[in-house]
Design a protein around this nucleic acid. Structure first.
Lengths: 202, 202
DNA sequence: TTTGTATTTAACCAAATGGTTAAACTATAT
DNA sequence: ATATAGTTTAACCATTTGGTTAAATACAAA
């Protein structure tokens, strides 16, 4: 068949899009089928049930959300200081590509904590190169003695949260003349400078 | 009747709890009724429909989420510098009381941006005392020239985001020996110090 | 007490939704 | 070509869910 392997994949991509946008509860099997351009029965043919389909989507989404960053955190050819803008840039760019991903992951993880706990625990951050580099720098009194997790969370918070709250910020803060892009560019710079200054000058 | 006014209120409180936890799509009218300890028909007697009930819940929730902070931002008897720990403390404590509120607001605002836009726009932050104080301090070269919105978002991000991502952080970062509370206490201090340092030393 | 009004309940309804099935269609190997 | 296995479709089904209704109950004013 010309489009043989495609049907299953079309379904998966459609499911990804719909689940990301509407969440598990908001998503309709019919909408996924329509988005994929196929009959609803195909969903159950390739993926047993809504739960199954969702499970696979979530797994991939989570790995995507967490996977890229671990690579950076374990990069050998860069100092901790060089990694900070890399992390910032990574999140900023992956959010532009996939703006719904973080909220999707956070939501479903929250409404079903225990179910996906195993998957989460596979990806702990403690033993990464980045963390080791920070600990060493702290021991050498090169930087302030802050828990590495705090540093990491500060970066992620500062970049990811504004995207989550975008509709709020746009209207409350009246991101004005300057557009959203400019606002986020400012932000990236600010977080970087602020964090470096805080770590190095103490 | 002894418990006269209470039925309507019991419904509302139950709706608040259930909607906060499960969102609009995940919430079931039956569950709200059960939580309130009344018959399902009462929901429609007092509040026409699910949409109506949800609308009222969202309105109150949003005002709660945004309202408290505006009071602080408009406080006259404090400097901008004194307001920063106040804002941090406000969010930290209101999150403990109501851990689901921010995610609830963010979610429903995202899936229905235009509908609640009006309500959002009522509460812009631009003309607050805090912002004016910051602008003045910038003009007097007392602090770095940063857009006040950036400062505000930095605070909110740093405190609120970790709560949203709590199930993630707890298992990825392995918030270890120290408990979550301690982690957040550390965080509050760090954000405060980091921000002040960044603003004043330039 | 009686009468009218607000409140509450149980039973019911229609639409939506996840899921199934049997038949039809396609392609490949023999 | 024919049998076989994989793929797709339309029609159908059972359950869930938001919503309705008519009768019953409590309550206050007359």
């Amino acid at each position: 068949m010309v489009e043989d392997k495609k049907t299953e994949q079309k379904i998966f991509e459609a499911a990804l899009a719909v689940f990301h946008k509407k969440g598990l509860n908001g998503a309709r099997m019919q909408e996924i089928a329509d988005t994929a351009g196929i009959n609803k029965a195909m969903l159950h043919y390739y993926y047993r049930s809504k739960e199954q389909l969702f499970g696979q989507v979530f797994l991939l989404s989570f790995r995507q959300f967490i996977g890229g960053i671990v690579t950076i955190l374990n990069h050998e050819g860069s100092t901790w200081e060089e990694k900070i803008p890399m992390i910032i840039e990574h999140y900023a760019s992956s959010l532009i590509l996939n703006p719904n991903l973080p909220l999707f992951v956070i939501n479903e993880l929250r409404s079903n904590p225990e179910q996906y706990l195993g998957i989460v625990k596979e990806n702990h951050i403690k033993e990464t190169v980045f963390v080791k580099q920070l600990i060493e720098a702290i021991e050498l009194k090169q930087i302030r003695g802050v828990r590495p997790l705090q540093i990491f969370i500060t970066i992620v918070s500062g970049i990811v949260f504004p995207y989550l709250a975008e509709p709020l910020i746009k209207n409350i803060g009246v991101v004005p003349e300057m557009g959203w892009e400019t606002f986020m560019e400012e932000r990236k710079k600010m977080i970087h400078e602020m964090l470096i200054k805080y770590l190095k000058e103490f």
